[in-house]
Design a protein around this nucleic acid. Structure first.
Lengths: 198, 198
DNA sequence: CCAAAAGTGTTGGGGTTACACCCATGT
DNA sequence: ACATGGGTGTAACCCCAACACTTTTGG
């Protein structure tokens, strides 16, 4: 029989204006063949960097699952990025996850990736990868609300997040149209298991 | 470069006398190459059945993760079985998970598989795959205690389990050395998400 | 002074934990 | 009658959810 091909497929997520976006290549998930015998995480990072020419310091990469597709086996990863870079190679575009029309395989991968992301932010600190260096508690709350797709109570959110003790107040303020907000950073930008919600 | 090989590796768990066992082949995890273009779950099932000649009605199979090994890429599964069959093909043996000496790769796979199993029984009903058709609540409690590696309070365990409403009393009793115990079955032997422990 | 978003406490209910004795059977 | 494991209830506590007003700034 014909030799099976082996791919890594990547679901790159980011947030912009309280909407979840995914990076697509020609309206499909980013995908490339595996050719080197190095850890799969490294292969996934290489493929992303090579194809998109984008470099991030604190992106979060996680393997989702592996499955048989029409043209071979794909090891699927999702990737969390802190912002939408302005310049992208040809054929790449950020797409709002809601109302997305992609092929059936990629669509079910996206559904699952979103579910895993929802689970993940509820018991780890990996949201750090979706946020800039400093941010306000309201911004952080918006990130959670966007990903979970539900409203969150401001007071309860603050109590919970601060009690988990993985944020650090900077003492600086974000000025805006209204009362300035305290700016926070993450104590550590490394994946840590921490029960965020019940 | 040389074409990478593709494997499925399986971690078959079962319980016997309140101890967790794993099935090994020549002191290594069961492993075989992927040759057909069918869903990976089916490949894993086929490999298990072909190699061990064992057939189960309600085994639970779940993909763990995929990683690069020395001789190629392995897609790793764990499998939950209801008992230790008496006759096994040559070179297969059940080994107690505690105090196991296997190679480093398999050892870390086993650690992770156990952790996933611990998580899994806390929010799903998949323990059904480790139990016979009928069982007492004490037996079920022993299964949880064994996998989680901790004692559980009898009254609280019963309240919790019964409130989840996935068991059905049969009305029959298990006779033994002492007072007969009510026998239960699972309403459904299909994976269902249900928060079992906090 | 008005608009806008930041920031802050309390209370009630639900769920979890801790805990000890009686019951049904076999020997 | 005794040994063995089966079976049962309650009280304290903690955590979570619900909820509204004051504060600080810019315009």
């Amino acid at each position: 029989m014909k030799q099976l091909s082996l791919f890594v497929k990547i679901v790159p997520f980011c947030l912009q204006e309280n909407q979840l976006f995914v990076l697509l290549n020609n309206n499909e998930l980013l995908k490339d063949t595996i050719t080197q015998q190095i850890p799969l995480d490294e292969i996934a990072q290489q493929i992303f960097t090579t194809k998109t020419k984008l470099i991030y310091a604190h992106a979060y990469l996680e393997q989702l699952y592996t499955h048989m597709e029409d043209d071979g086996i794909s090891v699927v990863y999702f990737l969390l990025l802190p912002d939408q870079p302005t310049s992208l190679p040809k054929d790449f575009s950020w797409n709002q996850v809601k109302n997305l029309s992609v092929n059936k395989t990629d669509s079910s991968i996206l559904d699952y990736a979103l579910q895993r992301l929802q689970w993940k932010i509820e018991y780890t600190n990996v949201v750090y990868s979706l946020l800039p260096e400093t941010f306000t508690l309201s911004e952080l709350q918006d990130v959670y609300a966007t990903i979970l797709g539900e409203q969150l109570d401001k007071r309860n959110f603050r109590k919970k997040i601060l009690s988990l003790n993985f944020l650090k107040a900077t003492g600086k303020k974000r000025k805006g149209i209204s009362r300035p907000a305290e700016l926070f950073t993450f104590k550590k930008r490394e994946p840590t298991i921490i029960k965020v919600f019940s």
